[in-house]
Simulated scan of single mutants.
Amino acid sequence: MKPCRGRELKKGCYVIEISFPAKKSFNYGWLLPAFIPVVFAALYFARKRSRVPESREPIEEKVDESQLGETESLPAITDHKKLGNFVFFESKGVLSLNNETIELSDKEGKALSILVSNQNEVVGRDLLMKELWEDDGVVVITRNVDVLISKLRKRLSADPSVKIVNVHGKGYKMIV
């Protein structure tokens, strides 16, 4: 018998041994260094959420509210700003127009406060994103800012003298 390259093999019984390497078990030890930062991040955010938020109302305002009569619709607050025909109560996050109040969400109130404090100046999208979301540990896209500004424009649409305009490639400008 000449099976390959001219070698001769003896006739008889041949045994072929096949062995497979032993199956290794998964080593979980390397997960520990990756798990530690995740635990610290979770504790950080859980602690941040469990903190009692500061009251948005100044102390003087609390005293004024307790002395108000039931006939007044808005408290006599000293932190208001005039925006055309609107009155913006920054601490309450409320717009007032002809004795009508418009409740603003927290994000709308913060954004309007930033725009009002920088009237007739360009406020960058990055600044709005940082102040409204990133300082709270939330990462968002610029589209979120666009949607928020759109909501503010709708709320301010009752007075055509108050406008929030786009400054292409830079941000927004409030014009009163």
Results as ranks from 00 to 15, higher is better:
Asp64Gln: 01
Phe45Asp: 01
Gly12Cys: 08
Pro75Ile: 01
Val147Gln: 15
His168Thr: 11
Pro75Met: 01
Glu70Gly: 09
Lys130Ile: 09
Ile114Ala: 07
Ser96Ala: 02
Glu54Lys: 12
Ser113Phe: 10
Glu121Thr: 13
Pro37Gln: 05
Ser50Arg: 14
Tyr172Cys: 02
Gly137Asp: 07
Ala42Met: 10
Phe86Ser: 03
Ala34Gln: 10
Gly169Thr: 09
Lys110Cys: 01
Lys110His: 08
Phe20Lys: 12
Val52Ala: 13
Leu112Asp: 04
Val39Asn: 07
Arg56His: 11
Pro58His: 07
Asp126Trp: 01
Arg155Gly: 03
Lys130Glu: 15
Glu60Gly: 09
Pro21Ile: 07
Asp126His: 03
Leu115Asn: 06
Thr71Trp: 01
Ser161Tyr: 07
Val123Ala: 09
Met174Val: 13
Leu156Pro: 02
Leu9Met: 14
Val87Glu: 12
Asn85Val: 00
Glu134Tyr: 06
Asp64Pro: 02
Val147Lys: 14
Leu83Ala: 08
Gly171His: 06
Thr71Ala: 02
Arg49His: 08
Ser66Trp: 05
Asp64Asn: 06
His80Asp: 12
Pro53Cys: 00
Asn99Glu: 15
Ile149Pro: 04
Pro33Asp: 04
Leu148Gln: 07
Ile114His: 02
Glu72Cys: 01
Pro75Gln: 00
Arg56Ala: 13
Val116Ser: 05
Ile16Thr: 12
Ser19Asn: 08
Thr78Val: 01
Pro37Val: 05
Asp159Glu: 06
Ser150His: 08
Asp159Phe: 03
Ala41His: 01
Val138Pro: 00
Glu103Trp: 01
Tyr172Gln: 00
Glu90Gly: 08
Ile18Ser: 12
Leu43Asp: 02
Ile164Asn: 08
